[in-house]
Design a protein around this nucleic acid. Structure first.
Lengths: 329, 329
DNA sequence: ATGAAAGCGCTAACAT
DNA sequence: ATGTTAGCGCTTTCAT
């Protein structure tokens, strides 16, 4: 049987109120003697306060939710670690929820998390506008990571300028002399800004947008692989650059070119997005946009918990991305 | 203000007991009319039952804990996804906890998780024997993943025969004609079986064990990189095979050889362990031991939840590994 | 068929 | 300095 505060009280010959006060350092008015005695009993019995009961009573679970599209995309664990590190340090737990990029699951996650009285919630990437609005209305403090939505409600935001980032990377390809630059990414909303960045770079540098060079599916390796094959077959190999929506797509793209013996970066140049940890170890090492994933998590959790504990207002913060030139360019 | 069961009761003109019964399908004795009315009110008010209160009352949080060394090692998210998929489907949530391979944090995780009244707990890899024993005594159902400990207490276990797996992979290298085979892995306990597998393969095939060919540090890329450089410098390049404790180490090893222009697999052959998703996309694609990570998660969660809900006893299950020959051999 | 009431483990306001 | 008590939102036994 789990030992409760009452057991401790009984064993120490005090009331549970006293124990509670000692536990929570409300012990200005507790005699040193009792304090010691109670602490000793706690120690001896390995008492572990029940956070659920405490949460119910306090209407504060000391838990934050983290909603992400897919934990298997290495970009997200990095964020998760950032969140967990600061959460743990501030005495908070993290409840994870995968949406699989499905808006219905997104709602389920939210419902699930709030049913556990989480004190705040961090969303990454996914997120239908109408969902965000609904969620915010429910009153749970919320910060959006890697997703800059124009929203008037009070919500925290941590992101990079993805549009500009992709503009830069596309421009880089153009500078390298690429003329037929493909864009392979996800159908997902978060891909929009990247798409715009790509198009703008083309437009403002006198290149035309060719629908045949655009392939939109998911943020995964298969998409990159299929995308390249699709594009190559429909354009009879006339591609000399590929801007990828994320690094996984880039990995798939590289594979596809390799199989066709098309040389990277000589015949075709590739740029990724995210800079997942293994990108630097690919062969050739992937040139990509570095997103500060771990910092995303840290910043988001810090802001959220500061807001929860000290009413610090939520804010918007743009972090710096960085184009990292490696071997695919 | 969050709407509670009392609000629903009031709004529907019934008692909260009635609402509760309807909510939990204990409605044999509820008139169809009331049922409908209550359900309507619930619907209209978007009522979301408070799992914390329910958990406290039921002494069952419908939550399981997952303790892992480091969420950033791609092997673990795969397991996590397996766990989450079955948990979600059975109405359970998953509370994650990173130990960073630190035994003290391992204890903290356990304390933290139990304070939230988790109904069961899944541990991967890390785990000091004395900790396991202590944890089991606390009465929380527990399953160990990827860690086969000889333990008499009742505990679930899902694992592969890592020793045999590494024996096989080392043997494979020997069959390919390697004579000077290095072993690079972690200092971690879970590395022991792998180490033994390596040594046995050498021993039973007439090869001697050379301490200079062994490098033990962590399960990460840096270890592989440093390990190779260390070994190369101390043996003046006489290595023709490397058995790696996991794929990340293999990635680092490949990098190190690449930098020295030592050809893989011609001059040196490499074998990894885990078969993380990106291994197949490395260049050359990594030959490795495939661990069924997602199945680990699924099996573990299924067993644990079956145990929690239907008192199905915990059991031990060995899953199959597979040596996957790709390009580094 | 429905409701009243107790209690899960905790905290906090209010005694004493 | 310490204790009494009510109540967080829920379920469940026992009345009615």
């Amino acid at each position: 049987m789990k030992v409760t505060i009452k057991d401790i009280a009984r064993l120490a010959g005090v009331s549970s109120a006293t124990v509670s006060k000692i536990l929570n350092n409300n012990d200005q008015h507790i005699s040193e003697k009792t304090r010691r005695r109670v602490l000793k009993v706690i120690e001896e019995n390995n008492y572990n306060p029940n956070s659920v009961a405490k949460g119910l009573r306090m209407k504060q679970s000391k838990m934050i939710g983290f909603v992400l599209p897919d934990i298997r995309n290495p970009f997200f664990p990095e964020i998760a670690k950032g969140i967990e590190d600061v959460a743990k340090q501030k005495g908070f737990g993290v409840l994870l929820c995968n949406t699989d990029n499905d808006f219905t699951k997104e709602e389920e996650c939210f419902k699930f998390l709030t049913s556990y009285m989480i004190d705040g919630i961090i969303f990454t990437r996914s997120l239908k506008r109408s969902n965000v609005e609904k969620f915010i209305k429910s009153g749970v403090p919320m910060v959006l990571v890697d997703r800059d939505l124009e929203i008037e409600e009070e919500v925290g935001k941590i992101f990079i300028d993805a549009q500009k980032a992709v503009y830069d990377s596309t421009k880089k390809l153009i500078d390298y002399g690429c003329k037929r630059i493909a864009f392979i990414s996800a159908k997902h909303i978060s891909s929009n800004e990247r798409y715009i960045g790509y198009k703008e770079a083309l437009n403002s540098n006198g290149l035309v947008i060719d629908e045949k060079l655009i392939y939109l599916e998911d943020y995964n390796v298969e998409t990159g692989y299929r995308g390249v094959n699709e594009i190559i077959s429909s354009t009879s190999c006339k591609v000399d650059g590929v801007v990828c929506g994320n690094d996984l797509i880039a990995v798939g793209a590289i594979k596809a070119f390799d199989e066709k013996n098309i040389q990277i970066p000589n015949e075709v140049k590739i740029i990724g997005f995210d800079d997942i940890y293994l990108s630097q170890y690919l062969n050739p090492p992937l040139t990509t946009i570095h997103q500060p994933a771990y910092e995303f998590g840290k910043e988001a959790a810090t802001m959220l918990i500061d807001h929860i504990e000290n009413e610090v207002p939520l804010y918007t913060k743009e972090l710096e991305y960085k184009l990292i030139i490696r071997g695919t360019v």
